[in-house]
């Protein structure tokens, strides 16, 4: 495993831990989109169908379990925990799941490497992950005022995506036959979705002011 991939996985892990920590310690999910969290839970559930059939490494299995466990517990907290539930900004989090899930499912049925259940589900998860952040970005735009933890959560997620692109470039040049168009194009789309947010995040950090997004 190369350094970009490891750093990418670690920033992904940090983003999830930042979010769980926020929810668990201050019992608040203000500014967090439940829609995005449910989409991530679906992404991991459909991608890791191979968790008990294909063993890659202990690292791989443990990380998969962490991502599955954390994404489902975040959804549980936001839906079921009395205090956390109360801080959920339901009125602004109105993005419709179906608008993302259905097109991704259709695309996965049309464009995939192998027509098997596991492979189509895996491809679906790749497409869905690329757009799953959209409800979160829409919510941030609507509320405009972003607390530090929410900003850091999205920042680390974006860092994870950027590092994965470097990892793919590295693997392309160092490993024979390493060509994955589906993953690359989806990953690129996903990273571009963060570009706007990154711009405001970094400029607010540079000017040392609280992060706000334009309407």
């Amino acid at each position: 495993m190369n350094a970009f991939r490891l750093a990418g996985d670690m920033t992904h892990l940090i983003s999830v831990l930042v979010l769980l920590l926020k929810i668990h310690t201050i019992k608040s999910c203000a500014g967090i989109s439940l829609k995005t969290q449910e989409l991530y839970a679906l992404v991991f559930a459909t991608r890791y169908l191979d968790i008990f059939t294909d063993f890659i490494s202990l690292y791989n299995t443990v990380m998969k379990l962490i991502f599955l466990g954390s994404s489902f517990s975040i959804v549980w907290y936001m839906r079921r925990h009395k205090l956390v539930q109360r801080s959920y900004d339901k009125d602004h989090d109105t993005f419709r799941h179906q608008l993302l899930v259905l097109p991704c499912l259709i695309l996965a049925l049309l464009i995939h490497e192998q027509f098997t259940f596991k492979e189509v589900m895996w491809t679906f998860s790749i497409y869905l992950e690329a757009v799953a952040i959209l409800p979160q970005l829409v919510l941030l735009q609507r509320t405009r005022n972003i607390d530090n933890l929410t900003g850091q959560y999205v920042f680390f997620l974006g860092a994870y995506r950027s590092l994965y692109i470097l990892n793919w470039i590295y693997r392309y040049f160092t490993e024979p036959h390493y060509v994955h168009w589906i993953t690359w194009i989806s990953g690129l789309v996903q990273t571009l979705l963060y570009a706007d947010f990154f711009y405001y995040y970094i400029s607010s950090w540079k000017n040392n002011v609280k992060l706000t997004l334009p309407a």
């Binding site: 991939r5 996985d9 992904h12 191979d50 294909d54 063993f55 890659i56 490494s57 791989n60 990380m63 998969k64 991502f67 490497e113 192998q114 492979e119 895996w122 994965y164 990892n167 994955h180 993953t183």
Partner: peptide, 10 residues
């Protein structure tokens, strides 16, 4: 194409 290997990323 080894599927397990190509799906080794998270």
């Amino acid at each position: 194409l080894d599927k397990a290997k190509s799906h080794d990323e998270l």
